[in-house]
Computed example of a mutant assay.
Amino acid sequence: MNQLVLSVPTISCGHCVKAIAESVGEVPGVGSVAVDFTAKTVLVTGAADPAAVREAIADAGYEVAR
């Protein structure tokens, strides 16, 4: 199972965590999603396309750091 860790510096509250987790959780191939408010990271496990995960985060209104 693959792991993808993304930095999302615009995470600022519990609502952000929930919105990102729900959006990323809908991406095909995602096994699990862990959003860390303090570290401002998103950990995704599974076989999801990284580009699709980034797009899901953007669709939720957040920007992934490059």
Score class of each variant (00 low, 15 high):
V5H: 03
V5R: 07
L6W: 08
L6F: 10
L6N: 12
P9M: 07
P9E: 04
P9Y: 07
I11P: 00
S12F: 13
C13Y: 10
C13V: 11
C13M: 07
G14S: 13
H15I: 06
V17E: 06
K18N: 12
A19N: 13
I20T: 06
A21G: 14
A21W: 02
E22T: 15
E22P: 01
E22L: 10
S23R: 04
S23I: 01
V24N: 00
V24F: 04
G25E: 08
E26Y: 00
E26I: 00
V27M: 06
V27H: 00
V27D: 01
P28F: 08
G29M: 12
G29L: 07
V30M: 09
G31P: 04
S32P: 05
V33Q: 01
V33W: 00
V35A: 04
V35E: 00
F37I: 11
T38I: 12
A39K: 15
A39S: 13
A39G: 06
K40F: 03
T41S: 09
T41R: 13
T41G: 04
V42M: 02
L43S: 13
L43K: 12
T45V: 05
A47N: 15
A47H: 10
A47D: 15
A48C: 02
D49C: 11
P50K: 11
P50N: 08
A52I: 06
A52H: 10
V53Y: 01
R54M: 11
R54W: 03
R54H: 10
E55V: 02
E55Q: 15
A56F: 06
A58Y: 04
A58E: 13
A58T: 14
A58M: 04
D59K: 15
D59A: 15
A60V: 13
A60D: 06
A60G: 09
A60N: 09
G61N: 07
Y62H: 14
V64K: 11
V64R: 11
R66M: 05
R66A: 15
R66Q: 14
R66E: 15
